[in-house]
Nucleic acid binder design. Sequence first.
DNA 1: GCTTGACTTAGACAAGGTCCATTGTAGGAT
DNA 2: ATCCTACAATGGACCTTGTCTAAGTCAAGC
Lengths: 138, 138
Amino acid sequence: MSDLLGRLRGRGWRMTAQRRVVAEVLDGEHVHLTADEVHARAVAKLPEISRATVYNTLGELVSLGEVLEVSTDKRAKRYDPNAHRPHHHLVCAQCGAIRDVHPTGNPLADLPDSERFGFTVSDVEMTYRGLCPNCSTA
Amino acid sequence: MSDLLGRLRGRGWRMTAQRRVVAEVLDGEHVHLTADEVHARAVAKLPEISRATVYNTLGELVSLGEVLEVSTDKRAKRYDPNAHRPHHHLVCAQCGAIRDVHPTGNPLADLPDSERFGFTVSDVEMTYRGLCPNCSTA
DNA sequence: GCTTGACTTAGACAAGGTCCATTGTAGGAT
DNA sequence: ATCCTACAATGGACCTTGTCTAAGTCAAGC
């Protein structure tokens, strides 16, 4: 994650304790925290950090392309630090567990011109749904 | 849409002016209204209808499988009456316009076992993003 | 045309998120 | 090393979306 911090500094990001903590919290694979979860973990490391700062920082990370906003859950947005390898998501319909997945195939090519309605299509987002091992045995 | 009303009555739904109005508002192709938009249009036809009733009715339509909940936009849920032909969505990243689309191919088959993490996968939801004709010329 | 249980209503409430005026501080200039 | 200042953080008000509840209303069977 020091990578991320370096990259950010390179882009003229002003480095503060708060921003560092938010970036640290978002480290890892299969990490998909809500803003509130990020805030809770950030508070553990830096008790004075405010909710607004967490929201601001997350928003900045998203617009810098370092973090993805995911909305698999229909309530809160989730933040996914794995922005540099394109991927999709697999979500447990019951408990909400999320995995990053990499389907084969090229879904963009699967949308015929006749179904594009004149749009310039640039991206697809796929959300697989099912039951995770835990929830399917229960 | 009289179809829908008939089907609902057949399932023991008590028919009220409010429910009829909500069902009417949701008629059509490429319709993806938020709950508030549904409410606004319903009020135009039946001024006394309350927000809670619209939410209740939408929720019932969803659990009866007559209407789909879509969350292409990261804010409010949208309601899609086209529940009987499976389809995906194409969204304008700028103005939010939504079209129903039918890609070829079978995305479920594109998720290898090694990427399933033991889940029982049952469904995929695809959201294509791009710019609509209007927004891409601007 | 009565009855009754399902439906509707208004408004309070909750969660997630945004905004803003004020205070604090990173990092360049001296 | 210290000072400055533009940018960042704070906390609290506020907004939007959605849910809940208690009381009143009404569709539909008798």
